[in-house]
Simulated scan of single mutants.
Amino acid sequence: GRAGVLVTRPPPGLAETIATLAARGWRPVAAPMLDIVTCPLASYGASPPQAVVVTSSQAVAAIARPDLVGIPCYAVGAATARRARAAGFAHVRIAPEGTAQGLGRMLSAQIMPSAGALLLAVGQGYAMDLARDLRDVGFRVRRRTVYRVTRRRQLDRPGHEMLMAGQAAAVLFFSPRTAQAFMAALTPAQRLALAHVRAIVISERTARVLDAALWRSVEVAPTPDSIGMLSRLGAGPLSVGPFSDMP
């Protein structure tokens, strides 16, 4: 039957999602569409920043250094905040809506531009809008690229086989960029196989990347995080007993 779920996010979040799906009665398949290459943080300027700002958990590894972990860290969402705390950041604050815009509003409300520069640690090509918005309200922003993202050109064999065998119930998309990579990688036969598959997406922005006509449904998570996505997906057909919401 259709118990398969393709998970398109890259590590390290990939393993966590796979484990949770299996526990909820799904047959998860890793189908990462992006590869992450960490770039060492060169310099952040003459003086330490007053705060470190991260828009993705992928940025945390590069900035978890003794000279930075004592500085307040502003994170885009709960998962990024968890990883920052695990990496040693002592003072972590989370943007309420889990978005870059929410992060910008929180910074403007909580700290003064005159107290020092912000270190914005991002992926190559990411968070340009946030940097501009913060500069517009008077912050000095040192935007530093600490990882690069490359797209995979095709679906891994396990994902391909599940899709072509008609065993996939859903595909999970955690970002617009992952959704773009997935759609660009599909063969014509794989595209046709999507007609009976649900797309579960983290945001409206991600939904817009997908052609709704190709899918059984394109469903947006009620909250922009993995908990919201899993609640939208529901319990799997292999689960034993009724599932409440995620712990």
Results as ranks from 00 to 15, higher is better:
F174K: 03
E97I: 00
V149P: 00
Q124C: 06
S47V: 13
D67S: 14
P247N: 13
A170C: 10
Q124G: 08
S114V: 12
R85P: 00
P48K: 08
L103S: 04
P40I: 12
G234V: 01
L14G: 11
A87I: 06
R232I: 02
V197F: 07
P48Y: 03
E204D: 14
H196W: 10
V53A: 03
E161S: 10
R177I: 10
F89C: 05
P242H: 08
R93C: 06
Q180T: 07
L210F: 05
A185W: 06
R85D: 07
V122M: 01
S108C: 11
P12V: 09
M106V: 08
V141F: 10
L186N: 01
A195P: 04
Q190A: 11
R143T: 07
T178Y: 02
V7F: 05
L238D: 14
V171A: 03
R148Y: 04
L230V: 02
V209G: 04
A3P: 00
V54S: 09
A221G: 03
R105M: 13
R191P: 04
F173A: 10
M106E: 08
H196E: 11
T17C: 11
D67Y: 11
Q154T: 12
L192Y: 06
Q101A: 15
V122E: 00
V171R: 01
A235Q: 11
V7P: 00
P96L: 08
E16V: 15
T20M: 14
A109S: 14
A109H: 13
G1A: 14
A61T: 10
M162F: 09
R27F: 08
R132V: 14
R135W: 04
G125P: 06
R135K: 15
L6N: 00
A195K: 15
R85H: 07
P188T: 07
L41K: 06
G70I: 08
S244Q: 13
Q110R: 12
V201T: 03
V5A: 09
M164K: 06
